[in-house]
Design a protein around this nucleic acid. Structure first.
Lengths: 144, 144
DNA sequence: AAAATAAAGGACAAAAAACTCTTTTATTCC
DNA sequence: GGAATAAAAGAGTTTTTTGTCCTTTATTTT
């Protein structure tokens, strides 16, 4: 569904949202450990999200990653789009370059409905909304 | 959603179903042209589906690929499963190795619903069901 | 100012996915 | 039996994705 890169990105963003809610910053090592991802790889990903303004960061001692208000309000769909592009939201289920109402692939209708639901879910889910449940260990970002 | 391999496989199977409905066989060149795929690549894929018994084939003059009754009744989910595995049907949306009702990732519930719909759609769709609409050019397997 | 810390950047490496080419095997037609 | 046809098989190559390593830059603390 999502690329590995995108999965790590979402998990990292949610993790950062939780750990930086009181104005703290989170180091890359802590993030990698917290979401069970390769350290250097998630560093690259966050670097990229940083350039795009989806995550904030500060260098030096006491530095790290954190989210501003807009970051916590950011929808999952924005992250998915910025990493995987909009293939998932607009592409044909069978990979046709031209697939539309007037030139549909065999699963065009059915797939459209599903895509719509995926869109809705990802539009509605916000990075910051899991913070409390995460703190209470009702939700998880890594294996036990 | 699906791998390229899987997309080609589904398109090829549907194409073969249509072209072999009267007992004819379809050559690999015709298939590749009909679904807009790399010829040698789809050949490999069909070879594999053949070994798994999902498609029939015959060598020599007048040979080619065709489907038996079971093949035409085959669901899309069976094809997806046999090529991409069941990641799509059972994996975690955020890629967690352990994600379950008792140890859920942040989108576990929402993703579960979507996965269920995808499953249903792929279980219900059968390779042979598009034959008529395809013949009437109401459905398509390649770009214009 | 020097040392320490932590992200940014760039280049590289490994693995997987997508795709190609050539030879072999089976079948049919003459 | 020999030529022609078409899939099967095997051994590549290319591209993309995933992951690693090392150097640089910015910031803070002493």
């Amino acid at each position: 569904m999502f690329s590995k890169t995108c999965e790590y990105a979402i998990r990292a963003m949610i993790f950062i949202a939780q750990r930086s809610r009181d104005g703290d910053k989170v180091g890359i090592r802590e993030i990698a450990a917290g979401i069970d991802s390769p350290e250097h790889f998630i560093a690259k990903i966050l670097q990229d999200l940083g350039r795009k303004g989806l995550v904030q960061s500060a260098k030096g001692p006491n530095g790290g990653f954190y989210l501003d208000r807009a970051g916590r309000d950011c929808s999952l769909s924005k992250i998915v789009r910025s990493i995987d592009g909009d293939q998932l939201f607009s592409g044909c289920g069978l990979g046709l370059k031209q697939c539309s109402e007037t030139h549909p692939c065999p699963i065009h209708q059915q797939f459209g409905k599903i895509r719509h639901q995926i869109s809705q879910m990802l539009d509605n889910a916000r990075i910051g909304e899991f913070t409390d449940q995460l703190a209470e260990q009702q939700l998880f970002l890594r294996r036990k």
